[in-house]
Design a binder for these strands. Structure first.
Lengths: 191, 191
DNA sequence: ATTATAATAGACGCAGTGTTGGAAAACAAC
DNA sequence: GTTGTTTTCCAACACTGCGTCTATTATAAT
């Protein structure tokens, strides 16, 4: 919340560190990326890193937080929770955003991240429609949310990893199909 | 495949290392567990570790492989791919196995693991029924598999993490419901 | 131009890594 | 039980990364 007033230099270095990390995450696992190597690649002094972040985990955490703010902003903006199931076009807006920032999301969600981003994105469930009836017990509701969100995220991840060849709208339709209709697609003619 | 003929001592140390790692994964992330600390807790000499494994990643990899062999063995044994959707009782057998070895699976799938176990378990999809019709394009099929497997795994993970309070059969029914019927459970009366 | 802030360079002790060589202990086979 | 093998232990090694610090230089903001 507290807006840091940053020098031009500071902004530049922070952005440089983030970009470099994203780049390195394409090839190496986060646990193998040392502050040393990161700074070397970014052509920054190692001391400089420590004036901005406590460690690489803190850097990653901030990146996640920033992304999360934008995503939840989008979520609130075009209120997706009115529709259930949501309109494909609406969901497609999100997928477009993911696609535009593919490199970033791949870094945060991909194999080389620690997948600690999943719990963050799982907060999406907090924004989903509150159950109208109390018939279904809360534990089951949690399971259902987990199932849906995780399933979608992993599909999106695999979509991005493969170059996001399908259109966002196509993916949106597929996701909604699976979410609300199950996975009968599998080897079964769609009727 | 090559059966190592192990000394009693060797067997003991390897088992001890595995157990200790599982134990430590309850509280610490894998990336923070050093060979030093592991050996200290296992009351083994650090040199001894290196006579068995190259590093902690190798240890974890072997543990995953062993588990995977048992799981795929179970899969082949009671042929689950005949039924689609599978009978709840059949799926429940697996969940029982997961529950019996909860500590191990939590260590391999939980937050403190690197979640590198997901790709392994994703191989389950290789064992799933080959699509009978060619109507659905292969990319969609991959997405559907990813969606289903990942969703189920994350539900199982959360089930275990919470003490596996529901019965395996109950969970099996829930999973099959969601897989083949979608997530209408959410805040909607079941009819 | 002055002041404040950021980046650099080099050093520090500390901790973990992966390897080595040799002594001590536990094992297997006879 | 004695013998020979294998495993574990112990202590040291050089190496790398960590996190902190101080002094110095460079660059914004006003």
């Amino acid at each position: 919340m507290a807006e840091k007033k940053l020098d031009q230099r500071a902004k530049l270095t922070e952005q440089l560190l983030k970009n470099t990390l994203v780049e390195m995450l394409k090839t190496q696992h986060i646990s193998k990326i040392s502050v040393r190597a990161l700074c070397e690649r970014a052509e920054l002094n190692r001391s400089t890193f420590y004036t901005h972040y406590a460690d690489t985990a803190a850097l990653l955490a901030q990146m996640k937080q920033e992304v999360w703010q934008r995503v939840s902003g989008l979520l609130n903006q075009q209120d997706i929770r009115i529709h259930k199931p949501p309109a494909p076009a609406l969901l497609a807006r999100f997928l477009e955003y993911f696609k535009e920032n593919a490199a970033l999301f791949e870094a945060l969600m991909g194999e080389n991240s620690d997948f600690a981003f999943k719990p963050d994105l799982m907060e999406i469930t907090q924004l989903l429609p509150r159950p109208s009836s109390q018939e279904v017990d809360p534990r089951t509701q949690e399971y259902v949310k987990t199932f849906g969100v995780t399933g979608c995220l992993s599909v999106i991840q695999s979509w991005l990893a493969d170059g996001a060849k399908e259109s966002p709208l196509h993916m949106a339709e597929l996701l909604i199909d699976m979410l609300f209709g199950g996975i009968r697609h599998l080897g079964q003619k769609q009727e």
